[in-house]
Design a protein around this nucleic acid. Structure first.
Lengths: 240, 240
DNA sequence: CGTAACCTTGATTAAGATCAATTCTCGTGG
DNA sequence: CCACGAGAATTGATCTTAATCAAGGTTACG
């Protein structure tokens, strides 16, 4: 597979012509990270956004007390750290800015492309097609954040966990086969439970207890990273 | 002031030519709401997004238990409910969709424009300029949500309140005069304290106690809707 | 000036964070 | 192939924050 073929896996670039992809490749840089490697810190000056060709990345913040919170979990096809590109249009000051959070590869051989800010912005201004793609990807993220923030405020940890599992199951069900009625469904967690805790806005101990609770109530069964939900159709109805 | 002049107050439309504004006005609808009036419910089918010509709007969700959470507070110049426009590009299904939350006017004579989805989308596809504007406005909102969600998970209510006050003070300071060193700063709350509580992800009782706490620690003083922060420069350093 | 909406205060309760101690899992080297 | 060790996950006891429940107090406005 050539580099420009790989780029088509990234949603933002998926409808570009080959010559446009070549153009992007010319001014960008591809790099492979192993599990646990930092892609950027929130103290580094901003130089451009990233696209994930393959792998898994967490975007997170650390509180002064040292607690971690994962804002986003992104995998193959996603882009991240685009927001600071639009900073200069929003801020009155023209000061240099940093990355808004930390990014870490959480899977071995995570392959990313870094696209420099200035080159891409001129590209963007001349490409309504890629503008629309980017608007879609922003819209998707806004939608996620809106519902996630509501869930953090209004739901307890157990309900947040259940919603997470159900969402994963739904992806699975529609991907594999189009079963409308899906009672039992098994997923494999693709992240560690501590990352999941941090993503759900809690800590590992509390998450562990929530898993326990759902098992005791006979809603799910857990075997290591394998989670089976007993009656998806029913659960979907009650977690609304 | 003509209608098309008013439209220029809306960030998204601020760089459009007069003929383009006239075009938008042709397919859109302007309406004035009094305080407390519903603009849309999350059960209504989506027909288009809104721009605030003048006034104040809250975008909120209600939990099954009846607790309210304000996701966004938007005032003059802002747009809201754009996300569902991009739904059809994201979802596999082509089903009709609803507004993603409720919207209520929280000020008398809130004047909004409703722009229909289909007309605007074709307009958007042919206007790279307005695409960039929309990307900026999405970026601004993403930035806010990212930091807000982190704040809800990692900060206690008092710190969230303090951050809110500081942010308002900063707007004030840079708007009125460009004082770099600003020790004492007074703001007037432009929303009710119960709305503020809901926006900060808490309830009025807890917010009230947080106000008390900050007063006891001599960080702020509160007189009705007037809040004075004692030493802004210092506080800004410690809440980071 | 009276009523309703808004705000404050107090007592109690519940959820989840923290602290501490095991247990489990999995990759690596002997 | 097994044993070891480190990181991950679980479990228990305790403590803190904020939600809930209940009752007054304030303010704004017709």
């Amino acid at each position: 597979m050539t580099n420009s073929d790989e780029l088509k896996n990234i949603f933002l670039f998926s409808e570009l012509e080959d010559f446009e992809l070549e153009n992007i490749l010319n001014f960008s840089r591809i790099k492979v990270y192993s599990k646990g490697e930092i892609i950027f810190f929130d103290t580094e000056p901003y130089i451009g956004f990233y696209g994930i060709i393959d792998g898994y990345v967490k975007i997170y913040k650390i509180s002064p007390e040292g607690r971690e919170h994962i804002i986003h979990l992104e995998n193959s096809g996603s882009t991240f750290a685009e927001i600071p590109m639009f900073e200069k249009y929003l801020a009155k000051t023209n000061s240099t800015h940093c990355y808004p959070a930390n990014a870490m590869s959480i899977e071995d051989n995570t392959k990313v492309i870094r696209v420099p800010e200035s080159d891409f912005l001129s590209f963007l201004r001349e490409n309504p097609k890629i503008c629309m793609k980017m608007l879609c990807s922003f819209a998707r993220r806004l939608k996620f954040l809106n519902s996630h923030i509501g869930s953090i405020i209004l739901d307890d940890v157990t309900k947040r966990l259940l919603k997470y599992i159900v969402k994963k199951c739904e992806c699975n069900c529609t991907d594999n086969n189009s079963v409308k009625e899906c009672f039992e469904c098994t997923i494999e967690l693709d992240i560690s439970k501590s990352d999941l805790a941090s993503h759900l806005g809690t800590i590992t101990e509390t998450l562990s207890r929530s898993f326990k609770k759902l098992q005791n109530e006979n809603i799910i069964s857990v075997k290591g990273k394998l989670i089976t939900i007993k009656n998806l159709t029913y659960i979907k109805k009650i977690i609304k």
